[in-house]
Design a protein around this nucleic acid. Structure first.
Lengths: 202, 202
DNA sequence: CCTACCGATCGGTAGG
DNA sequence: CCTACCGATCGGTAGG
């Protein structure tokens, strides 16, 4: 008895994956500090202390979620722009990939948007570094478009911040059962971003 | 002795204003739950329990900050668009006013962006209602511009969300001693927003 | 405005 | 994986 309640997802199979999945849901719904180990255990039909058979500390769950999100975003970005020359098309694909990630990993993105202060050092500096790295990729695309005379903005940096903030904001209002599918939203944001940087046909 | 450490700002004069000001700084720097009443008191040269002579509860400090921010944004918006006919110009002014508020109330905006989950009911529903009200104002401007054939976007709702998310994001990276003044950033975002909605000259 | 202190919560450990 | 429990933290009150 008591062998059920798993298969919730969780990139890593087994119990650890279940714990991460339950933690992700609760962190997104209530916030990191308002989520107790007991509550995470309860979601899995366990007692709080039992979680320590799979996790070293509550903080590790947050760290893995937040750093993992950035790793995956960086990977998706690379795949999205690979093999494309046109900076406008690259930017559009990068934005679509970003928003696609946001709508399909809403909880992760919500946690990433809100819990920076809950992340202990040294993970926090690592996260900020990875975020900066990710932002630079977008900024570079904007700069290339600018050099080639395809875009028209006064600051590539503000443009890249704007584009990322727009995209991250989708996590707040997107509903799986809403009027638009995630794919539609992603496509729309791709076009919105191009328009924001003043993209002109080649 | 012990009659110093005030004049930190705080819309309401006197001690209550000082407490709010200290709380705002700490909530923005460490987060609401990581900020103790003792720490707020310490920032004012007081003991934690002394704060209860001026404040009913820690939660009231958060509520006043968050709801107050929205009240002020709503008022600034009304002033910014009053007397203007052209929806493009109205939108530009509304965005400039928004970003102006963000750069001059960075801490407030950071708290508003991150602490929704820390806000107890019924304040939370009130805040969300006020946020929706504020978003609708932007959405209405976008819709009017669309009706008059001045803008070109597929969804006024996504456009308004994007514009607000862009603007709120400024609180994360803006530095008073940075390369651009708040006024320059606000002006830039005003133009960026118009470009994002595909604004065309009248 | 202060000291003393209560009551509750919570992460994590011990020890099976 | 569980029960029992420790140690620390913290909002708020009592009572001057």
């Amino acid at each position: 008895m008591g062998e059920d309640s798993r298969r919730l997802g969780g990139r890593t199979g087994g119990r650890l994956g279940d714990v991460r999945e339950a933690a992700l849901t609760l962190f997104a719904e209530r916030g990191y500090r308002a989520t107790t180990m007991r509550a995470i255990g309860e979601a899995l039909g366990l007692r709080g202390p039992s979680l320590y058979n799979h996790v070293g500390a509550k903080q590790e769950l947050l760290r893995d979620i937040m750093l993992g999100t950035l790793d995956r975003l960086l990977a998706e970005h690379a795949a999205a722009v690979a093999g494309i020359e046109d900076p406008a098309e690259q930017l559009r694909r990068a934005v679509v990939a970003h928003v696609r990630y946001v709508v399909s990993h809403k909880r992760e993105v919500l946690v990433n948007n809100r819990e920076v202060l809950s992340l202990d050092e040294p993970s926090r500096v690592l996260l900020v570094a990875r975020r900066n790295e990710y932002e630079r990729l977008f900024r570079n695309l904007v700069e290339r478009g600018l050099e080639e005379g395809r875009f028209e903005v006064e600051s590539a940096r503000m443009a890249s911040y704007s584009i990322l903030d727009m995209g991250n904001g989708v996590a707040v209002w997107f509903r799986e059962d809403g009027a638009m599918t995630g794919e539609e939203v992603a496509a729309h944001y791709g076009r919105l971003a191009l328009q924001a940087v003043g993209a002109r046909p080649a």
